[in-house]
Simulated assay, not measured.
Amino acid sequence: MSTLVVVGYQDMHKAEEVRLQLWKLQRDYLLDLEDAVVVIKNEKGKVKLHQAFNLTSAGAVSGGFWGALIGLMFLNPLLGMAVGASAGAVSGALTDLGIDDNFMKELGASMTPGSSALFVLLRAASAAPDKVLEELKGTGGTILKTSLSHEDEAKIQAALNG
């Protein structure tokens, strides 16, 4: 079962810094991230999502490969690559994995201008929660939404406060 944690920051760049720390923890096998998205509300009030994975470009590359391969069979690999890349890009843009984009945009709309939020979806509980909390200690932020118990939420908020 996946766990959702959303942390808001008053700084526009802080959520990205914390996401980089989480990637480091994942690389050290302390976390199992399913998705980690940074939402920024700029000074003009516009909400932007910074996804961890760009599905549009991944779809274009994959589609281009398969299109070129099929195009080789019909003696026109360039046309096949172009059609495949276009179809792959459209398919990737329409695919939504992880956290729902509409949910993130709605929560982002309620944020103050010049702030950011980090949306994290964990696949499984951390193998070493004390190490994760120690790494996040003092990063600031306020928990906006979570699917954790009240006790676990309080532990995370205490670590964020440092």
Score class of each variant (00 low, 15 high):
18 V>K: 12
126 S>W: 10
93 A>N: 05
103 F>P: 02
128 A>S: 00
69 L>G: 07
58 A>S: 07
129 P>V: 02
82 A>C: 14
43 E>N: 09
52 A>M: 15
117 A>C: 13
70 I>C: 13
101 D>W: 01
94 L>V: 03
121 L>I: 03
125 A>P: 03
82 A>T: 14
18 V>N: 12
54 N>D: 05
19 R>Y: 04
15 A>K: 06
58 A>W: 06
116 S>P: 01
75 L>A: 09
88 G>A: 04
39 V>R: 03
102 N>S: 09
55 L>C: 02
36 A>M: 03
14 K>W: 02
46 K>H: 02
38 V>A: 12
54 N>W: 00
40 I>E: 07
102 N>F: 08
46 K>D: 08
46 K>L: 08
18 V>L: 13
55 L>Y: 06
119 F>E: 08
34 E>K: 09
49 L>I: 06
24 K>E: 06
95 T>S: 04
98 G>W: 04
83 V>P: 01
39 V>T: 11
64 G>Q: 08
110 S>V: 11
81 M>S: 13
33 L>S: 09
57 S>P: 00
54 N>H: 00
128 A>V: 01
108 G>R: 02
92 G>L: 10
103 F>H: 11
94 L>K: 02
78 L>M: 14
39 V>C: 09
65 F>E: 12
112 T>K: 14
48 K>Q: 10
109 A>T: 07
69 L>D: 06
124 A>M: 10
103 F>S: 11
86 S>K: 04
74 F>T: 12
122 L>N: 05
109 A>H: 14
69 L>R: 11
86 S>G: 13
71 G>F: 02
94 L>I: 09
74 F>K: 04
35 D>Q: 00
35 D>V: 01
47 V>L: 11
77 P>F: 14
123 R>E: 14
53 F>M: 11
60 A>Y: 01
44 K>Q: 14
79 L>H: 07
112 T>Q: 15
36 A>R: 01
85 A>F: 02
85 A>D: 07
107 L>A: 10
31 L>Y: 07
106 E>V: 12
86 S>N: 08
119 F>W: 11
51 Q>G: 03
70 I>V: 14
43 E>G: 07
28 D>M: 10
122 L>Q: 12
84 G>Y: 12
24 K>T: 08
92 G>I: 08
25 L>C: 10
73 M>H: 12
14 K>V: 10
34 E>W: 05
22 L>K: 09
16 E>N: 11
46 K>R: 05
85 A>V: 06
48 K>W: 01
85 A>L: 12
113 P>D: 05
46 K>T: 06
19 R>T: 08
38 V>M: 05
98 G>L: 06
40 I>M: 04
24 K>A: 04
15 A>T: 09
60 A>D: 07
31 L>W: 13
32 D>K: 15
98 G>R: 06
82 A>D: 04
125 A>R: 09
30 L>F: 00
100 D>C: 13
51 Q>L: 09
59 G>H: 00
107 L>Q: 10
66 W>G: 07
119 F>N: 09
37 V>E: 07
56 T>L: 14
79 L>W: 14
90 V>D: 03
114 G>A: 10
26 Q>I: 15
83 V>M: 06
87 A>P: 00
84 G>S: 12
75 L>G: 02
